[in-house]
Design a protein around this nucleic acid. Structure first.
Lengths: 205, 205
DNA sequence: CCGAAACCTGAGTATTGAGTCATGTTTCAT
DNA sequence: ATGAAACATGACTCAATACTCAGGTTTCGG
């Protein structure tokens, strides 16, 4: 059980009914794992919640690990779409950075269960977890390099920057969007963006 | 089981032998949970590894959750000591920031099991996990405020900055110190520090 | 409308491992 | 030296739950 993703994916459902059932299970699993955590969430609770028989689960997923993997992929797709849309017509990279950060925080607050699901994957399947971040990092890095070439940002190590910036979003998101449901994300995003823009060093002299 | 820390701590060992045994168990648990993860680590493996009987475990810890809690506290103490030492005689905050970042990365690479143990606590006992970060954030925040008063850093939101900076360390640490065991941490720390210092905005015009 | 493929079921099996306890050994203050 | 408290043991109990399977129902192209 250790880590392993292994074995070919189960064949996709062939009928409309099958697809609907699969989604019902996926949604129930997201709610269950998102609120109780991977260990506490049981297949029987998930299937009950989805209003299907126990055995039905195994028509679409090989195991509990398997459904978590699928949820991580789903989360990645949704977040990516959300961010792409948010920064689509930003005039430059710095503005894209600001909008992306804000959009990320909003997304976390609106999808607390998905956020937790991804975090659990760290231990259930390190490979998927790593890939999740690496994919974001890769496109982040590309964006930074392009912006640097255009002279929109100061030159610097794009790989390290990409991970550092993801780190900011991740931790600030946890603290202010996940743990704190009151504070204005607009203000938090502005404050964090100010740091990203200018750093800590005192201006002028 | 949900979250709960609850119930008075078990009485400390009264004899030298007892204290030694408790430490043996703690060390074994750290190795086991650190390498296989909380779910996969079993009490029987931990006690076997510590070369004590199964029942001995319950003389010192109420449950598997309990031992994890203790490990998180231990990790916090060790990391705090390490960082305090590293930045002790830095001439100013910016330099302290550079040294602290570097020291953190070194610490992660040298203590991969403890790092993972803390991450697992997120799900096993959210309260301890939160406190772990909140404690670091609080002292980070205080340091930033003092530096701001001294004019060593530009003014800004100390709370957000503290979490953002922790986020950088956390994510950069995961990527370059935990997942990558080859790369020079000196160089990574410098690159990240450059971002923290100056931000992304192009200098001059 | 037919029948074959797809889908669904939930009681039952099999495993796993946390936590207990009755009994035995070591420590250490007096 | 001694006995009471502290420490140690590991076989056993017991609950939990992931996953199976033999037999039923629904779907849908032709």
């Amino acid at each position: 059980m250790s880590d392993a993703n292994s074995s070919p994916p189960l064949p996709a459902p062939k009928t409309r009914r099958g697809e609907r059932t699969r989604q019902k299970i996926l949604n129930a699993a997201q709610r269950e794992i998102g609120s109780k955590g991977f260990a506490e969430a049981s297949i029987s609770t998930i299937t009950a919640e989805a209003a299907v028989g126990q055995g039905t689960f195994y028509l679409y997923f090989r195991s509990k690990e398997d459904v978590l993997r699928e949820l991580v992929l789903r989360m990645g797709r949704r977040l990516r779409r959300h961010l792409t849309l948010a920064i689509a017509d930003a005039p430059n990279r710095l503005e894209a950075e600001r909008r992306g950060l804000r959009a990320f925080l909003e997304f976390v607050r609106a999808n607390t269960d998905l956020y937790r699901v991804v975090a659990e994957a760290q231990f259930v399947d390190p490979t998927v977890f790593k890939r999740y971040y690496q994919d974001f990092a890769a496109s982040y890095r590309a964006g930074l390099l392009a912006a640097e070439a255009r002279g929109e940002i100061a030159p610097g190590d794009a790989e390290v920057r990409a991970w550092a910036l993801m780190g900011i979003s991740d931790m600030v998101g946890r603290r202010f969007a996940l743990w704190d449901s009151e504070v204005s994300l607009r203000k938090i995003a502005e404050a964090a963006h100010a740091l990203i823009l200018e750093g800590l060093a005192p201006r002028g002299r």
